[in-house]
Design a protein around this nucleic acid. Structure first.
Length: 422
RNA sequence: GGAGAGGUGGCAGAGUGGUCGAAUGCGCUCGCUUGGAAAGCGUGUGUAGGGCAACCUACCGAGGGUUCGAAUCCCUCCCUCUCCGCCA
């Protein structure tokens, strides 16, 4: 959510943001609503003021006296007006808040113009894509793949997109997660094991509700949602809190399974490990002082990149253009790993600065030098999502004999140098 | 899951219908005092919204209700603690 004052005082800034993100919102309607709300607010507050004055007067009068009874009669009318006014006010506030929720975050000045994914900037590339086998297979075509990654059994037991990982398949997932968590720990992120079901208030604070309600699995009886990413419980850790400024920046990471209904996905995007309803991911999250947030974003992106480098997986970094930036982000980089068999880039991390957009919704603040609470900036990114990293690893490292060479950094975790499908 | 107790400012803790945004203590701030410190004395010390401002309004777990008026009474929900039950 944006600062209502920003809209009121600098509507042109918001207008420019909408244009850069290629979104269309009727700003004038929101401004008009804000204006009528403020008029009504002052009216109701005036009436409440009258009640308070009468209250102190009546406290001094004898209970049954004629003056007292007259005052009661007089204030009954005011009371009715207050009740009515408050109802109108509440309705206005709900509408205003809802309207404010339709306004996207302001893109940072360094975000390139553009409307479509094709206009994203290739910010950096690492590794030699051409050096990989031109005859590599898509991972689901590797002989024996089904033995380690059993989609059929998963479909029977749960449904499509919920595979079993078996033997070396399970082991490589565990090795990757362990490696990610250890590396992130070395980079200064404190490991957290969070709840993977969250309540509606948490899902609202990070923006899953109300906009993405259909994307989450629900535990209806209890009103809980299965987390689509560890970002949700992690960010909400400090919800409605004021963090000591001296503690900033706070670095945290968490592994959780992630659950996404992915309604509307189809085709090559959902083959094999490319897109699952349940998958494992380590998330990186920072709460930072506003002055440092873009440096911190670059550092976080670097931390995620270093994981791919250590695994020896070629990747590129995209700087998202305005039109592909997303609603809540001020700036976003995507990390995409090269998958030699599919001959395409797979997104494995999305590193974003939300500035105060999430912090305002979640009311996460720190106490500034002048003693006043101020909103923090939140930054997050994957570090990393397992299935697509795994897909690239299987495809890129497949040997002529049908085994997969395990990157040396992973061998201590995996326990051997080759993964076999036998 | 059952029974009971409770949720008030940074913390502890008073307050059972009006003069209560809330006593008192602790903590913290600034000042006095001191060679310096402690003690002592005094001062200040929540958050949010509206208003150019003076200032006004709201908030005592959350949401409803009763009333001229609610921290205080009623209802629903959430959470914590104690005991019992169940259990990885």
């Amino acid at each position: 959510m944006l600062d209502p004052k920003l809209l009121r005082e600098s509507p042109d800034v918001v207008r420019a943001a909408l244009a850069k993100k290629h979104l269309n919102v009727d700003l004038d309607a929101i401004l008009a609503l804000d204006e009528t709300w403020r008029v009504k607010l002052q009216q109701v507050e005036g009436l409440r003021g009258q009640q308070k004055v009468a209250n102190t007067e009546m406290a001094k009068l004898p209970k049954g006296s004629p003056e007292f009874i007259a005052k009661v009669q007089e204030m009954k009318a005011v009371s009715a007006q207050v009740k009515e006014g408050e109802a109108v006010l509440k309705e206005m506030e709900d509408r205003l808040k809802q309207a404010m929720m339709t306004l996207p975050n302001i893109p940072h000045a360094s975000v390139p113009e553009g409307r479509t994914p094709e206009e994203n900037i290739v910010f950096a590339t690492w590794g030699d894509v051409g050096a990989l086998s031109p005859n590599a297979k898509a991972h689901w075509e590797i002989p024996g793949f089904d033995k380690l990654f059993d989609f059929a059994r998963g479909s029977k037991v749960t449904g499509a997109g919920f595979p079993f990982y078996i033997g070396d398949g399970a082991r490589i997932v565990r090795a990757l997660l362990h490696f990610f968590l250890d590396e992130n720990g070395k980079a200064g992120y404190v490991e957290v094991n969070p709840p993977i079901l969250v309540n509606a208030a948490s899902a609202t604070a990070t923006g899953q509700l109300p906009d993405k309600e259909g994307q989450m699995y629900e535990a209806v009886a209890d009103g809980f949602y299965a987390v689509p990413t560890a970002e949700v419980p992690l960010t909400n850790f400090f919800r409605d809190e004021i963090i000591d400024e001296a503690l900033l920046p706070v670095y945290r990471c968490a592994y959780t399974p992630c659950f996404r209904r992915e309604a509307g996905s189809y085709g090559k995007d959902v083959r094999g490990l490319n897109r699952l309803h349940q998958f494992d991911k380590v998330e990186l999250l920072k709460w930072v002082h506003p002055a440092t947030s873009y440096d911190e974003l670059d550092k976080l992106r670097g931390d995620a990149e270093s994981l791919l480098r250590k695994l020896g997986l070629p990747y590129r970094v995209l700087l998202m253009c305005g039109g592909d930036l997303g609603f809540a982000q001020s700036k976003k980089y995507d990390l995409e790993v090269w998958s030699a068999g599919q001959k395409r880039w797979l997104e494995v991390s999305s590193c974003s600065n939300f500035e105060t957009f999430q912090a305002r919704r979640a009311q996460i603040r720190f106490r500034g030098k002048d003693g006043k609470p101020e909103l923090v900036h939140t930054i997050n990114g994957s570090g990393l999502a397992v299935p697509r990293v795994l897909a690239a690893l299987l495809e890129n490292n497949l040997q002529a004999d049908g085994r997969v060479k395990i990157p040396s950094v992973l061998v201590p975790y995996f326990g051997k140098e080759y993964l076999t499908f036998a």
